[in-house]
Design a protein around this nucleic acid. Structure first.
Lengths: 147, 147
DNA sequence: TATTAATAATTAGTATGACAAATATATGAA
DNA sequence: TTCATATATTTGTCATACTAATTATTAATA
């Protein structure tokens, strides 16, 4: 087992993840979607699950809470979501998709799927299975106490 | 070909890349390496290739030039590298590893390999081959005019 | 109940990433 | 040579991560 060689995975992973995001953001900008890729992830999850607390939303989106707070701030400014009081816990908010937010999700979903598929040229279902399995294994291998 | 399903790769990729970096940085901090994961990439490449211009260094490290400038600034402050005039081109610098920088690379290399290997538990050489091939294919699929 | 501990959200600080614009220098063409 | 263009680096701005610390509220326990 050649450690040297394996070490490269972190570089490849980082570089590819960055390009995937950069490519998508470039397309978002060209097509004037008016949001960032990370903002999109929040909208999509809200559309799917409806009215999540920020903590829940952070978990679904794989973001930490401070980051999520800031992304929600930006989405509130854009009037795509709003914070509503949580009737059962005054510490927390429920994040709610506005009509404009719902509209945005419906308008963009198809386009974004197309953008995402560009990465998958020359790859097949089996590759997807491999990638999913390997990434999830790595993710689990690096679990941290409070991560 | 179910587009919906494939879409998940971007989330998995982003999430895994972040955890890999976060895990490594956590170990760096615990062991008081005194540098960040991205700073390490610069030191390692400088140690391997010796005296690169910032442009070359950016390419090897897969970073853009403004980002590289800022990371080099931090490494200069830590006295791990220094900028030297490039005798053949007064626009550019040559980034040079100081004695302290070289020392740092030698001290940390082994430890960092160990940290990196943690991700590879329950995975084998074949998986590494798959991951490398798939990530590189995605990377190439999303090439933009000027990379 | 009173006190302590835990939790949801926020804020602050530092690092990184993308992109655009500015500066200095180099190169190529008229 | 002169002018236009290209290149290496830097700076500015905004967005995202991660950590630690703060605030308000809730839950747990003596």
């Amino acid at each position: 087992m050649l450690m040297k060689q394996y070490n490269a995975y972190s570089f490849l992973l980082d570089r590819t993840a960055r390009r995937v995001k950069q490519y998508a953001q470039y397309q978002f900008n060209c097509q004037q979607f008016g949001i960032t890729v990370d903002q999109w992830a929040i909208l999509k999850n809200l559309n799917q699950y409806t009215d999540l607390s920020q903590k829940e939303l952070a978990e679904y989106c794989g973001k930490d809470q401070p980051t999520l707070t800031r992304i929600v701030d930006l989405l509130v400014n854009k009037k795509l979501v709003e914070r509503r009081a949580n009737p059962t816990d005054r510490r927390s908010f429920v994040v709610h998709l506005t009509a404009a937010g719902k509209q945005k999700v419906e308008t963009l979903s198809g386009e974004i799927s197309k953008i995402r598929m560009q990465a998958w040229k020359n790859l097949n279902e089996k590759d997807f299975g491999h990638l999913k399995r390997i990434l999830n294994t790595i993710y689990d291998n690096l679990e941290m106490e409070h991560g």
